[in-house]
Simulated assay, not measured.
Amino acid sequence: MATANARSGGLVLFMTVSFATSWAAWFLAMNLDGSATEPPAIGPYVFGAFGPLIGALVVRIRRRRRGEPLPEHVVRFRPATLLWAPFLLALAAASVVGAAFLAHALGGPGVDLSEADGLFEKAGGAAPFFVSMLVTGPLSEEAGWRGTAYPRMRASMGRFTVGLVLGAIWLVWHLPLFFIDGTVQNKLGIDTLSGALFAASVLPMAMLTGYAYERAGVAASIAVHFAANTTMVLLGVEEPVTQASIMGVQLLLVLALLALPGTRRKPAAPSADPSSHPLAHTGA
């Protein structure tokens, strides 16, 4: 009972800190003049993305102070699991590109990278662009959503159910971005089909990153999150047919991955964590 209470308390604490931090920062960004990509709004806009990471750190500090064991379904870091990260990164990117070609075959726009140069120029080069895509999203969120919330929810739910429920929570967490000038969400609009599909796209993404986490931990979920986000941005995915195709392809991909033999991981036994590696138990 004590373990179950600790798990539940940790999940509530994580959600409270994550939402409070992110939404407070984004509310400030909404009420500042200018775009979210420029001062003064860029500060709180970017800080808000780190709400899940801050929530994960708060939960971890509390757990260690109380001497509580790791949640049963935490995926521990092992160097060998890093071999999965590039494979899953390529698979996530391919799901977006493949879906874009499928959408074109169905009458949607063609695959176009013409906007990439503009994005690189605005970011100050290709390297800063990719770094920004890695930091604001994958690194700022995955230790929280997957490293902290996922194993606690997984204790009482199946993998598919956790993906849907955590995906729905993730969707709600993103909603303030529709009201901040300069964001992709604001450009699409919350009252449009493109905006609704963009918001709903986090559901298959939550399942895909959840699979990656169970397979190889936070490093793998970061890789999947980064690959999907970056590929979608570079392709300028905005048309509903393309967005729907990406959602469909990623859902089928997740179902296929979960059906593969050997995907049922044995959960980590509860224990005190040795913190033997910087990525070990990230956010748990």
Rank of each mutant, 00 (worst) to 15 (best):
S156V: 14
M157N: 10
G158Y: 10
R159Y: 07
F160A: 15
F160H: 13
G163P: 11
G163Q: 11
V165K: 06
A168V: 09
I169E: 01
I169V: 08
W170G: 01
L171V: 14
L171M: 15
V172L: 15
V172P: 07
V172E: 09
L175Y: 09
L175I: 12
P176M: 06
L177Y: 00
L177Q: 00
L177I: 03
F178P: 03
F178A: 07
D181T: 14
D181L: 13
D181C: 11
G182E: 10
V184M: 06
V184T: 07
Q185T: 08
N186C: 05
G189L: 14
I190W: 00
S194Y: 06
A196Y: 04
A199Q: 00
A199C: 05
A199G: 01
A200Y: 11
S201R: 02
S201W: 08
V202W: 01
V202D: 00
L203H: 01
P204I: 00
M205Q: 14
A206P: 05
M207D: 02
L208T: 01
G210P: 01
A212V: 08
A212E: 02
E214N: 06
R215F: 13
R215I: 13
R215C: 14
A216W: 10
G217P: 06
V218A: 07
A220W: 15
A223W: 04
H225K: 00
N229G: 11
T230G: 12
T230H: 11
L234Y: 10
V237T: 13
V237G: 12
E238V: 15
E239K: 04
P240E: 07
V241P: 00
V241L: 06
V241D: 03
V241A: 08
